[in-house]
């Protein structure tokens, strides 16, 4: 897996945006991935045996060469996944509409009713109407107040892909974004379970992004959740996001941890190993203060949730305590 972040520009200002740290250093001019970097990225994907091009941003459809990038990817036989907010230019809608639904998935990050943005919601719904079976609806959960049922009618009304993608808003290392604190995970777990019941009754599946943990769901639901539960616990791993300037990061929230350049011989497996090595010290504890003693962590059934949150749990507070009165502390 590897995501190509082709632009840092966006036409929304989501309070939870976890691309925030990675967007900061770019001027408007430097906000777009060049064609040369994009071509090199396609080479890298092919070399790594990856058959899917995943375009994200910012809002990737704002890249002036977006349609051309889509053409190039399809000509080389890649599947396409596009992470979009659906507020895309008409010429992009038209290009995507001409792609066979089997070749493209547009993961549409829906505007939650809590955002109270009816104008943009209507634009999103228009995109769903036009692109229908190419669209998988999703939502990022950043508040305990978010209800999730509003997604189900979209699937029916616009004949979307029958899967809903759920994500949790995680903190970036600078903690400059709004995120869902793990103390609310159990509350959200109940809402997800409720959504699951309603979705399954309509033959709709749920999919989880990274950072969910098994203990956010009631133990009694373990059988019902089945394999989904195990996938939730094990899915904090390097995603490999390629930034517009040609540098890889592990994932958006960990933008400040380590950057590795895309080179002529870069291979996804090698990148993954390097990032995993960097993350390994953070596998021994979790997002909660009781994670380290949890059998699920010890048995690697769960890796303790979002690494960015774990890293933010670690603090430095200096102290300088005079050690007067201690028995001889130094020896010659």
């Amino acid at each position: 897996m590897a995501n190509l972040s082709i632009t840092t520009l966006c036409n929304k200002t989501c309070p939870y945006c976890f691309a925030e740290d990675s967007r900061q250093p770019y001027s408007k001019k430097g906000a777009f991935m060049s064609e040369a970097v994009f071509d090199a990225a396609l080479e890298y994907l092919a070399r790594s045996g990856i058959d899917q091009v995943r375009l994200l941003g910012g809002e990737p459809t704002l890249h002036p060469q977006f349609n051309r990038m889509v053409d190039k990817a399809l000509e080389r036989g890649f599947q396409l996944m596009i992470f979009s907010n659906g507020l895309m230019p008409p010429k992009v809608q038209e290009r995507l509409r001409r792609i066979d639904p089997g070749e493209v998935v547009i993961l549409l990050n829906t505007i939650h009713p809590l955002e109270a943005d009816p104008r943009r919601m209507r634009r999103q719904q228009r995109t769903m109407e036009i692109l229908g079976p190419r669209v998988m609806p999703g939502v990022n959960i950043y508040s305990r107040r978010q209800e999730l049922d509003y997604l189900l009618p979209y699937v029916e009304q616009y004949q979307l892909i029958r899967e809903i993608r759920l994500g949790i808003a995680h903190p970036v290392l600078s903690e400059s974004n709004v995120f869902l604190h793990p103390k609310f995970y159990k509350e959200i777990g109940l809402k997800i379970l409720d959504l699951l019941h309603k979705a399954r009754a309509l033959d709709i599946e749920l999919g989880f992004d990274c950072g969910f943990v098994p203990c956010m769901f009631p133990e009694a639901a373990a059988e019902e959740l089945g394999e989904m539960l195990q996938r939730t616990g094990s899915c904090c791993h390097p995603i490999l996001d390629l930034l517009p300037d040609g540098n890889f990061i592990s994932c958006y929230p960990l933008n400040n941890l380590l950057k590795l350049p895309l080179q002529a011989d870069t291979h996804a497996q090698q990148l993954m190993e390097t990032f995993e090595e960097k993350l390994a010290p953070y596998r021994r504890f979790g997002i909660y203060d009781h994670c380290a003693g949890c059998p699920l962590l010890q048995q690697s059934y769960c890796n303790g949730g979002c690494t960015a949150f774990k890293m933010n749990r670690l603090r430095h507070r200096s102290f300088a305590v005079p050690i007067d009165g201690m028995a001889p502390l130094l020896v010659e």
């Binding site: 504890f285 003693g293 670690l314 430095h316 507070r317 305590v321 050690i323």
Partner: peptide, 22 residues
């Protein structure tokens, strides 16, 4: 350096910590 009253114990900046259950 043998003057005990002149010494400080400090936590260097690369030492991070968090409170855990145990």
């Amino acid at each position: 350096k043998q003057n005990r009253h002149s010494l400080l114990a400090t936590a260097p900046s690369h030492i991070l910590w968090t409170v855990e259950h145990n």
